[in-house]
Each structure stands twice: as C-alpha cells, then as structure tokens.
Computed example of a mutant assay.
Amino acid sequence: MSKEYEKYVNIDGVALYTKVIKGKKDSPVIIMDAGYGDYSKAWYQVAERIIEYGTVLLYDRAGLGKSEKSPNARISSEMVKELKELLQQLQLKPPYILIGHSFGGINVRLFASFYPEETAGLILIDSTPENYRDDFLPIMSPEFQEAYYKQFIYEGTYEEFMSSLYEAGLHCKSIGNIPLVIVAAGKKAFYSSEAQVKWLQMQKELLQLSNNHRLIIAPNSGHYIQRDEPEYVIEAARWVLSHM
C-alpha cells in the first residue's frame, strides 16, 4: 500500500502545491516535472506505478494547477531554485531521479547541472531541445508555427521560454556519468515523416549529455508518452536504478 500526502509549501510568499507518494522505499526521491503550462495531473497514469522504485514527488509550478502565481520570472533557473527550496522544506533528501516532460526536461537538466552531486539519474520524456526554434520549427507548416507562438500565455512569456532554452544551452553541457534515458515519441501528431525523423534525430543528440545513456523510442506515442505508453517511463526508471 502506498501512502500519499498533499501539502502547500511557501516559497517567497507563494504557496506551491505538492503531493508526495511513498511506497516501500524512501529513497531515491523521484521528481516529476511537467511540460510548459502543465502540472501534476500529467503524471497520474504513471506515478502510482513508479513508487515501486522510491518516493515520488509531484508538484505544480507557480501559477499552474493548485499553486499560486509568483512575481518572479518564469525561467528555468528560477524554477530550479524554487524546486530546490521545496525539496528542503519537505525534507526530501537526495539522491534524486529527475523526470522531465517536454519543457520540464529543460528544468531537470538545469537542476542536474547545478546539483550533480544530488542527482542519481535523469529521464527526459520527449524533451524540448534548446535548438528547437532554429533547427526544428522552420520545417513545420505555417499553421503549426502560428499555433506554437500563440501557446505562450499559460506560464511565462515566449521571451521567458526562450531564456530558459538559452540557459540550458549555456549550463547543460555534460552531466558526466549520471545515468540518462531519453524517451522519444515515435508517432507525433501533425508531424510529416520528415519532421518525425528530424525530431528523433534531435532527441538522439541529447544523449551526448551523459556518457552513461540509453535511448527508448515509444513507437505508438504522441507527445504524452507517460499517458500513451507509460510502460516506457517505467522501463526508463528501472534502467536508471540499475545503472546508478
């Protein structure tokens, strides 16, 4: 039987919603960071299955889900700072396995780069590459590009989002031998065959972040692999644990 508790953590006067789920093992702490504008509900299908391997932390970043808005910049370095403080207040000690979906992948990469000694593993689920705008977006249809630029109303601005990608490019050169799994979607909606090939190529390029890595392609998944084929996220967690 798992035990779970919900708590609001005060960071700089802002109440952030957290849910901690404990199974048989207290350690490692498995942190799940959702995509841009998304929150903890994105992980519900997989969280209850992954507690077999440790303690799971789900949380809503500021301004999303049940968390209050923050006056601080909505850039990755600020989000990592808030996450670090949140972990300390919840007394969730390292080692951490960080799982980031989409934009959440930028956040967890930055966390691993800032705190490598606390990071036991990294799992990037269809994560945003820092060169997305320059190398990928131009091959997509005008309609897709227009929709892409219009989405930046939920969590920070387009400029803040691009600042986060810049931070990843600046700080996330290598995480050494920390176990890394890239889980990539093999069946993305609205992608031409050319775009799908390019996307998988860019996901493979993220492998160079670690000398200790694995690529998993979810053949029938769209962007939300943790919903479409959650077994690949579980497989990634197992691999990381066996290579720690």
Rank of each mutant, 00 (worst) to 15 (best):
Q45I: 04
P116A: 03
E167M: 11
V183M: 11
W199F: 14
W199Y: 11
V80D: 02
P219N: 09
A47Q: 10
Y96P: 00
P230A: 09
G222T: 02
Q201N: 12
S141H: 10
G105Q: 05
L206G: 10
V183G: 05
A189N: 14
R238S: 05
P138V: 10
S67H: 06
S141F: 11
G104Y: 04
N10W: 08
D135Q: 15
L122C: 04
Q88S: 15
F161Q: 00
C172F: 07
C172S: 13
H101M: 06
I123L: 07
L137M: 10
Y224S: 13
V108Q: 01
F190H: 14
P71H: 06
Q201T: 15
I153G: 07
L64C: 05
L215R: 04
K198N: 10
V197C: 06
Y44L: 12
E159N: 09
F144C: 03
E52M: 05
I153T: 15
A112G: 04
E194C: 02
K25N: 14
R61E: 05
L110S: 02
E155R: 02
L241W: 03
P94E: 06
I30S: 01
L58G: 12
Q203I: 09
I225A: 08
L64D: 03
L165F: 10
Y148I: 05
G104K: 03
G63T: 08
V183Q: 09
M1D: 12
D33L: 01
I139F: 13
G100V: 02
G104H: 05
K93P: 00
Y232M: 06
T18C: 13
I125R: 02
S102P: 02
A34T: 04
A184Y: 11
E118C: 00
V183F: 10
G186W: 11
S127E: 04
Q226N: 11
A62N: 05
N212Q: 07
V183R: 07
S210Y: 03
A195H: 06
E143A: 12
M162T: 14
A42V: 10
Y158I: 08
E117V: 02
G105T: 05
S221W: 05
P28L: 05
V20L: 09
E117D: 11
E159A: 14
I31W: 01
Y166E: 15
S210Q: 08
Y5S: 12
A15M: 12
G54V: 04
K204H: 12
G63D: 07
S102F: 06
G176Q: 03
W239C: 06
Y132L: 13
V56T: 08
E78F: 04
